[in-house]
Design a protein around this nucleic acid. Structure first.
Length: 803
DNA sequence: TTCGGGAGAGTTTTT
DNA sequence: CTCTCCCGAA
């Protein structure tokens, strides 16, 4: 019976999965089957009847990880898993707080502030207190508040030693204000839940009895508060021999701790062993992902860190090819060389439809580095996808809509009030609002409450707003939620407001409509936990779908994984690459000052443990993403912030044994290769197929500016930002051929070099170059007002006209 | 209310 | 170099 789920596990994995029902620490190296062990452990507990589904709590950091775990379990077991709690720390805490809102001192309609909302609230409080926001950076105050909460400290508990009295005062005012408005920030979810469990024996006992098995993923990323919360749920000291009552199965890798900068405390791993009486730690050291060469490199680098728990990855796999370290002239040549390498490899591998481009990943230390790469990918017609950026529920128009929905649920939420009171514009200016805010501050009331109390004294324009909210509330109450949202989109005036916007209006309205789809999805999946019914038998106490949806929108903020399946080269920061793997990995900017980042190398006092060790772990994460091939690139000169830097090769690369490396610099690069797209020459310069079109003189890539992103990328409602550059279809070199191709491109587009044009967005301009053909024609246009841009004709044509 | 200029900053990121 | 933020003018 259990044999099938245990089949194929190596001895250590088997030992971890079938460990006794006590607290264990699993040290799981990169690519050692961590997620598999975690899910199989749960499956095993259920199959062996050691636990029922309701006795299991599985905690992760990201929604993605939670979803993956649940999906895998559903594939493994024929059980109904609805009684099992699988979620993020924040999601689980939210769930508990919703069930016990009254006990936790929260209104049942409490709303969650995201980081942006939190910052605006902090700013508003600081302005009310007449603080100079120039001298006092609100972001620092926000960080201080979050730092305090993540360390379990209320304003009353922070000592002057930790912060200025000013900061503590603002923190206190912020606490009061959140309480008055019935809103909580992310850190508050955890702190409030922790305090609830600590204070209320009734609540604590319920969950202590319930969750006999707690499983934690990425344990090395837990902060102080999360760890305290876990210990409380584990029933630290309540079990036999002073051990915990419940069993905590913690999986982590100290070498992959890369979030100390946001409060993660690796020390939790050793504290855990002591506090929860862990008898043994199980190390998963067999790597199933990378070649021996890649693994040896990773081990060599991480070996330079002190105070590791100790672990050495090994593989039974092949040795694999050497790691290429390539020196380039500058970041443009770097981008060109990467794209070039990818094109050649892609050609060798052949057009395997599914993973033709997806097998390649480019990892960088900072987001700014994606620029040159994106320009090159666009110009070369290679499909790519950049991770990161705005998520769906963070878009302005979506937040506007959510603001109205939140006003319906909880009108005392000042942040939402301020967001929508004059969006769309209804003539409520700064002066009116200042008056309202002042009155509110004097009376210690929320804006909404103040407005209601003012009655006839309320300025007429605010009356309009007040009545609008009242009417929306009333109408929404008698409607299905999806209809209510639809109604709000039009009745709020948002639709009309955005319809006036020529450029982005239609996209924005489409995004708002997409919210209706999201609500529909939510209604289908929503379920009320049985704990809710146990504690709140009164029907009235059950959460409204609206609250549930708004909560989910804030906690999940939209799926960044959307579009993950498109076949495109993946561009992302090393941080976002954690947990992923790719056949081919390029680590660009392997330079001293970039990776390791200069800010990590300077001060040791700031990060506590010294920033360099974390940078090294970051490099360890980067290297271990590669399955087959790994490339480092570095530049002799790199332009950043408008200056040129001459960085040395990253010291981390120097920590890799020479035997594993193949060093290449452009002067070594004897045999030029030409794939028909141009060549990578001794000079390190990219020389275009024609020798002039994309030559170093043209600066084709350099000119491709930010503005063309919106043109070049699909602008769907999702958060994925896929880019398909011009896919040129011609091959071969030679200037006469190139000239012929240029002609053909001109014929395809109906424009020719020198034409004066008018673009709906960028205004007047002159066509400078045309390349490609058919769907893949790219026009370079010098706009008089917006600079020079490279536009994919297929997309730009709707907005482009002859002048 | 919106636009434009000027100043300042400029790792990494989930919830 | 570019983006963001804030302030002042139309």
């Amino acid at each position: 019976m259990s044999s099938d789920i245990l089949a194929g596990l190596n001895p250590e994995q088997h030992r971890a999965v079938t460990a006794p029902e006590e607290s264990v620490l699993i040290l799981a190296g990169a690519g050692s089957g961590k997620t598999r062990v975690l899910t199989t452990r749960i499956a095993w507990l259920l199959q062996e009847n050691l636990a029922s589904t309701s006795e299991i709590l599985a905690v992760t950091f990201t929604n993605k990880a939670a979803k993956e775990m649940l999906a895998r379990l559903e594939g493994m077991l024929p059980y109904d898993l609805r009684r099992m709690w699988v979620g993020t720390f924040h999601g689980i805490c939210n769930r508990i707080l919703r069930i016990h809102a009254a006990d936790a001192g929260l209104p049942k309609t409490f709303q969650i502030l995201d980081s942006g909302d939190q910052l605006s609230l902090v700013k508003r409080i600081m302005r009310t207190a007449d603080l100079d926001l120039e001298k006092n950076d609100p972001k620092l105050f926000q960080n201080f508040i979050n730092w305090s909460k993540e360390n379990g400290l209320r304003a009353s508990q922070v000592t002057v030693k930790d912060a200025s009295t000013l900061k503590i005062d603002v923190y206190r005012a912020y606490e009061n204000e959140c309480q008055r408005q019935g809103v909580v920030d992310f850190a508050e979810l955890l702190l409030r839940c922790y305090e609830l469990l600590a204070r209320s024996e009734l609540v604590r006992t319920h969950y202590l009895k319930r969750f006999r098995h707690i499983l934690v993923d990425e344990f090395q990323d837990t902060n102080v508060l999360q760890y305290k919360w876990l210990k409380l749920l584990a029933g630290e000291g309540l079990g036999a021999d002073g051990g915990p009552l419940n069993a905590v199965f913690a999986v982590g890798d100290d070498d992959q701790s890369i979030y100390a900068f946001r409060g993660a405390n690796v020390g939790n791993m050793s504290d855990f062993m002591r506090d929860l009486h862990v008898k043994e730690t199980i190390k998963l050291e067999q790597n199933y992902r990378s070649t021996k060469t890649v693994l040896d490199a990773a081990n060599a680098v991480i070996d330079n860190n002190n105070g590791r728990l100790g672990k050495n990855l090994w593989t039974a796999g092949v040795k694999g090819e050497k790691i290429v370290v390539r020196e380039l002239a500058d970041e443009l040549a770097e981008a060109a060389s990467v794209v070039d390498e990818i094109r050649r490899a892609e050609r060798r591998i052949g057009p395997d439809a599914q993973t033709r481009w997806r097998r390649f990943a480019i990892l960088y230390r900072t987001n700014a580095q994606s620029r040159a790469l994106e320009a090159e990918f666009t110009a070369r017609g290679v499909p790519y996808r950049v991770y990161g950026g705005l998520r769906f529920f963070e878009r302005a128009e979506v937040k506007d809509l959510l603001g109205y929905l939140r006003m319906i649920t909880n009108p005392w939420d000042d942040t939402s009030f301020m967001r929508v009171v004059n969006t769309p514009t209804r003539g409520i200016g700064a002066k009116t609002l200042e008056m309202l805010q002042q009155t509110a501050a004097q009376n210690g009331q929320t804006l909404w409450a103040t407005m209601i109390q003012m009655g006839d004294a309320l300025p007429p324009k605010l009356c309009v707003f007040r009545d609008l909210i009242f009417s929306l509330r009333e109408t929404a109450q008698n409607m299905k939620l999806t209809d209510a949202v639809s109604h709000v989109i039009s009745a709020s005036g948002l639709q009309a407001f955005y319809e006036k916007d020529q450029k982005t209006g239609q996209d924005r309205i489409a995004n708002m409509k997409e919210v209706i789809t999201a609500v529909d999805g939510w209604l289908r999946s929503e379920q009320i936990p049985e704990d809710w019914l146990a504690f709140s038998p009164v029907n009235d106490e059950v959460p409204s779908p609206m609250e549930g949806f708004l909560t989910q929108a804030t906690l999940e903020a939209g799926d960044k994984n959307e579009g993950q399946n498109i076949d495109a080269v993946q561009l992302m920061t090393v941080h976002s690459a954690k947990g992923l793997e790719f056949p081919w990995v390029f680590i660009v900017g392997a330079e001293e000052g970039i990776f390791p980042h200069f800010s990590a190398t300077k001060s040791v006092s700031e990060g506590g443990q010294g920033g360099l060790a974390e940078e090294r772990r970051l490099m360890y994460v980067a290297i271990t993403r590669a399955k087959e091939r790994l490339f480092f690139t570095h530049c002799r000169a790199r332009r950043m912030y408008g200056q040129s830097f001459n960085n040395k090769l990253s010291s981390f690369v120097k920590e890799i044994p020479d035997a594993l490396l193949k060093m290449e610099s452009e002067s070594d690069d004897e045999d030029d290769y030409d794939d028909g797209w141009g060549r990578f020459s001794r000079g390190g310069r990219w020389e275009g197929a024609s020798g002039s079109k994309y030559g170093s003189s043209g600066g084709w890539q350099r000119q491709s500016s930010y503005g063309d992103k919106s043109e070049g990328r699909s602008s769907g409602s999702g958060s994925s930002s896929a880019g398909y550059g011009a896919r040129k279809s011609f091959a071969g070199a030679g200037s006469s051929l190139a000239a012929a191709q240029a002609k053909r491109a001109e014929a395809d587009s109906g424009y020719k070099t020198g034409d004066a044009v008018l673009h709906d967005v960028f205004g007047a301009g002159v066509v400078k170059h045309i390349v490609g053909s058919g769907d893949t024609t790219v026009l370079r246009i010098a706009f008089s007002g917006s600079g020079t841009k490279d536009l994919l004709f297929k997309i730009a044509k709707a907005k482009l006209h002859h002048a």
